[in-house]
Write a protein that binds this DNA or RNA. Sequence first.
DNA 1: CTGTTAGCGCATTCAC
DNA 2: GTGAATGCGCTAACAG
Lengths: 334, 334
Amino acid sequence: MTEPVTLDQVARAAGVSRSTASRVINGGVASAQSIESVNQAVADLGFVPNRAAQTLARQRTDQVAIVTPESPAAMFVDPFIAIAIDAISHRLWRAGLQPQLALTDPADPIATTRRFLHHSNVDGIIVVHFIRDPQLEELLTELELPLVFVGRPPDSTRDFPYVDADNVHGGYIATKHLLDQGRRRVACMGGALVRIAAVDRRAGWLRAHREAGLEPGPYVELDFQAAGATAAAAELLRADPAVDAVFAQSDTLAVATLHAAAAQGRRVPEDLAVVGFDDSAAATRVSPRLTTVAQPIALLSSAGADLMVERLRTGRWGSWPRVFPTELVVRDSA
Amino acid sequence: MTEPVTLDQVARAAGVSRSTASRVINGGVASAQSIESVNQAVADLGFVPNRAAQTLARQRTDQVAIVTPESPAAMFVDPFIAIAIDAISHRLWRAGLQPQLALTDPADPIATTRRFLHHSNVDGIIVVHFIRDPQLEELLTELELPLVFVGRPPDSTRDFPYVDADNVHGGYIATKHLLDQGRRRVACMGGALVRIAAVDRRAGWLRAHREAGLEPGPYVELDFQAAGATAAAAELLRADPAVDAVFAQSDTLAVATLHAAAAQGRRVPEDLAVVGFDDSAAATRVSPRLTTVAQPIALLSSAGADLMVERLRTGRWGSWPRVFPTELVVRDSA
DNA sequence: CTGTTAGCGCATTCAC
DNA sequence: GTGAATGCGCTAACAG
């Protein structure tokens, strides 16, 4: 807990002016002589520049926030978010930017997210897995910071740069795969409809039915990573025995469906076909192995980070949106 | 992207001085008249105080960093870390402090952690799941920021406030439980020994053997959340068939052991007894349900956060260390 | 209750 | 190549 050392002290110790010391430290031009003595002084005194002062003077922080309107616990459970954050961090570090993950108060994620968006001292914000929320959306429009969405934002805020996976197509191919093999009543277990991804996947599910001239089965709305998913799936199968296939919007939900089916003595895929989403690690750990829709999470997240990096470097946006393809991985469950 | 509004502009618009405007905004004394007009101006102009300037002037940030020397992906996979972060966030928010999770570069978590410890602009740092690393440890001793460890730091840095679970006792009761029921060769699958928790749990395992006058079985060292755990467990069982019990230092490892045993046709607990650690959600989802050591992660993490909050508020440390009890939860696997 | 005055620690323009 | 001067936006004594 020593008293923090200032640039002034370094300059004095090195026998030069503050500006020269500053130049040396930031790699500007200076005589070999100055460079030598300043570096010496920095080492001797253990000088570490004060971030706040630098920020104030430079008018930039070299920090980028990653925010996702979820409680920390929820963030950690969702494989999409985990992979996205990992990829984004890597990209930002490589570009010389420090990522900062905004942690919300589990007691009120939305409110604290709002607070973060407003008062953060960062150069830009990358929003992962945004949700529909009138207050948040309004906030965005008046925000004065570069913003990138990983996972497209709601229509009302369409003018923000984003990257995404082609969720509509993902829902479509999953459902089509089921219908093509003769399934006639395809239920969908989806994310809450405040999630854009859930809306899109649902749209794909509907479209496949429309094209086939069939009525869609029931839509069960619950969280992608819902703890009560097994119970919900069991209820679905019980309430509507005609359901012969389920399109689950996440592998977590698909696995839960598998459990529920097993408990009711229904064989997969014979009696019930199941398609998941994400192609997560869980997909190959269950039996039968999951047929699921793969999305390139790391890739699209990196693209999102790149968008931010370019904006911060050049002052202008690269091309967007960038929408990455989803594809069906056929295994044993459908 | 409008030009940021400054306090000056607010003051001018309100027809008062900067200091009065500042007072009103920060809840100081002022006439109803001033309060009225300043608030009006703030609203009209959409004033948001500049964090860097505030920090510089106040000499504090009201932000606390949470750092853990892991890649983001690893952080997200470890249930201890997830729960700890959730609990810490909540406590900090409640105290009016903003938590900031330091995200490391997956390509080099240690280096970026080091960087963070050094250059962060926060009032204090909470370190979760520290590991033994000479460079990091040295850094700590010269750090000039309040520091709290969730999970005790290495002996070399013993003088830092910390909270922890009683891991030695946890390892002891797990092993004793196995020995008491007549198991004679108890292997241990543990975390890498750079983890303090792994060292401590191993110590408990050894102590139980010493007390019983028995030779400990083999110690298998690998990550708590290792992907290859099932293979490692299989190898262990094959290489040393006399092993009739396994103390796994995490539920993830215990579940892997279950899988390996099943694959080799060994019944649990008849042929092989297994005890896990964490009492995580996974413990009751497997069959047989896991006997495991519970540790109050949220509780101890909150205590860690409280330590920091008190230090920041009062300038002095509360009493530490605070070591929370671990206890055995007996289910079906041992 | 209010305005004036000084910084907080650093970057940077401008003459020298 | 270098130093003096100025400002980033805000807070906090200090008089009044």
